[in-house]
């Protein structure tokens, strides 16, 4: 495997459309739940251990070669909010387009054919990692990092938060990210033997409720 491929995939400039999503931060800022670096950190920590863990588990399982359509259904079951399912599939479709151009592979083409309106982003991410010669742990790292870097970057724009402070938040979360990746990879390994029910399913009620509130806004800066 090429270690540099991980940097290409994890780069925020990878053209997969992630910059248009705030991971729930836009709604949380407007509702007054994120007001500064400390509340951003608490938000990111909660998102990491819920949505981040679930995404990392799905991505690691896909990178292991589990059936992407089974994983796509597992992602639906773990995403009660219709707004988040729509956002997840939109992001998945954009990532798949970029991935097929970057690391062409029959598995990616097959998924695009089976889910023309988009598969859930973490499933595509895991399959992309596989196509790039990366492993389940790499896929989980990408998912976990995205789960907190999106809200941190968005909060810099939404609150005019000092970018140095936002980056310091991400650095402070690094040990928690390592821990989340380890849990996701262990769960994905269990899922190989026991099926998708063994994958993480941690939920975050305010992220799910907030996503529905955000979807109904007439004007918004971010897509989710």
């Amino acid at each position: 495997m090429s270690r540099a491929a991980l940097l290409v995939l994890a780069d925020g400039r990878f053209p997969a459309g992630g910059h248009a999503h705030s991971g729930g931060a836009e709604e949380a800022v407007k509702a007054g739940r994120i007001t500064d670096a400390a509340t951003l950190e608490a938000f990111c920590r909660g998102r990491l251990y819920t949505a981040g863990l679930v995404a990392a588990g799905l991505a690691a399982a896909a990178a292991h070669g589990m059936d992407p359509l089974d994983l796509d259904a597992a992602a639906d079951a773990r995403t009660p909010s219709a707004a988040l399912r729509t956002a997840g599939r939109k992001l998945g479709r954009q990532l798949l387009r970029a991935a097929r151009a970057t690391w062409p592979a029959p598995e990616l083409s097959a998924l695009a054919a089976a889910r023309p309106r988009g598969a859930h982003q973490p499933v595509v991410l895991g399959l992309t990692a596989r196509a790039a010669g990366l492993g389940p742990e790499d896929a989980a790292y990408c998912a976990v990092y995205e789960s907190v870097s999106g809200p941190a970057t968005a909060t810099v724009r939404l609150l005019s938060l000092d970018p140095f402070q936002a980056t310091a938040v991400l650095a402070r979360l690094a040990p928690a990210m390592d821990e989340t990746v380890a849990a996701a990879v262990a769960a994905a390994r269990r899922a190989l033997a026991e099926g998708v029910d063994a994958l993480p399913r941690a939920s975050a009620p305010l992220l799910e409720i907030g996503a529905e509130a955000h979807r109904a806004w007439p004007v918004r800066l971010f897509a989710s």
């Binding site: 938000f43 990111c44 920590r45 998102r47 941690a202 305010l206």
Partner: peptide, 10 residues
């Protein structure tokens, strides 16, 4: 897990 009481969860 930390964050359960925070702005993303409860």
């Amino acid at each position: 897990p930390a964050g359960w009481d925070g702005p993303a969860v409860l």
